[in-house]
Computed example of a mutant assay.
Amino acid sequence: MTYTPRAVAGMLGIAPTTLRTWDQRYGLGPSERTEGGHRRYDEADVDVLRRMVVLIGQGVSPASAAVLARQEPATRTSAPIGADKALKAQRGFLTAAKRLDEPLMLDLAAKLLADHGVVSVWESVFVPCLVELGELIADRGSGVEIEHMASGSVLQALREVPRANGPGVLAALLACAPEEQHVLALEALGAALSEQGGQWRSLGARVPPEALCDAVVRLRPSVVLVWAHRADLAELVPLAELGRRTTALVAVAGPGWAGMTLPSSVRRPAGLAEAVELVMSRV
């Protein structure tokens, strides 16, 4: 598939004249031309230009960004956390949580994320710890302060994962169902997308149906994903209206959607890794 300069400019959120300048000054032009001499960009050209946009947004000079943009993006050096290390990390994080030692929790969370990445740490450490703390509260009838501080520490660590800045394709718009107040899983998805260079925005908790529809129309994301942890909250999400008002891929996540009949166009990723793959495949 190839794209016209105007289409590429729209995809990247830049002016067509900027594309022409980058072609003339830095050689970041299209790989193909029609018989009539019209420029046509292929997928590889667009990937290079997308990296150019991100690098400039991060403060890199255009000339340096052009050199870096031609290079393949660096692969992460972090490795998934092993089972033994995950159990050790869980014990350390839970011990810090029960002591209300927020600085230690933040330090442990930051190091784990840097070494092993968001998806691996979320699934192998953070979720098991938060589940165990929830069960502790249910069994003892106390300990809410422990769970709150642990959740807050995880949230802060996730929000410190560097985000892609500058103009470019908005990969995902994330939102909670109306009256849904649990945002931590959405923050984990956002942080995981940031690791992959994906741009995203979050509307946070308790998003009214009309506000969600308006934001999707205004922001034009590639994917809109809505989280719900209970079925009664999921039922309030305007899936049909979203389908009418946007060309974005609509996806849902969270236990609230289990067993619900969804429109054929709506996707439901099974977990965090699948959600990240779904979003990044549309960028």
Results as ranks from 00 to 15, higher is better:
T4R: 10
R6D: 06
A7P: 02
A15D: 15
T18F: 12
R20A: 05
T21W: 08
G27A: 05
G27K: 09
L28M: 13
S31K: 14
E35I: 15
G36V: 12
Y41L: 06
E43C: 11
V53P: 03
V54C: 04
G59L: 14
A63C: 10
R70V: 03
R70M: 03
R70T: 10
T77Y: 01
T77G: 08
S78W: 12
A79G: 06
R91D: 10
G92L: 04
K98R: 14
D101L: 06
D101Y: 05
E102F: 12
P103Y: 09
L106Y: 03
L108P: 03
V118D: 00
V119A: 01
V119Y: 03
V121M: 08
W122A: 00
H148W: 13
L155G: 12
L155Y: 11
E160Y: 13
G168Y: 13
A172S: 13
L174S: 05
A175W: 03
C176K: 00
C176A: 11
E187V: 13
E187T: 15
A188V: 08
A188Y: 03
G197T: 02
R201M: 10
S202W: 05
L203V: 09
R206C: 13
E210K: 11
L212M: 01
C213N: 06
A215V: 09
V216Y: 01
R220A: 12
R220P: 01
V224H: 01
L225W: 01
A231D: 07
A231R: 15
A234Q: 00
E241Y: 12
R244E: 10
T246C: 04
V250M: 01
A253F: 00
G254S: 07
G254T: 01
G256M: 03
S265I: 04
R268A: 04
L272V: 03
E277V: 05
L278M: 05
M280L: 15
V283N: 07
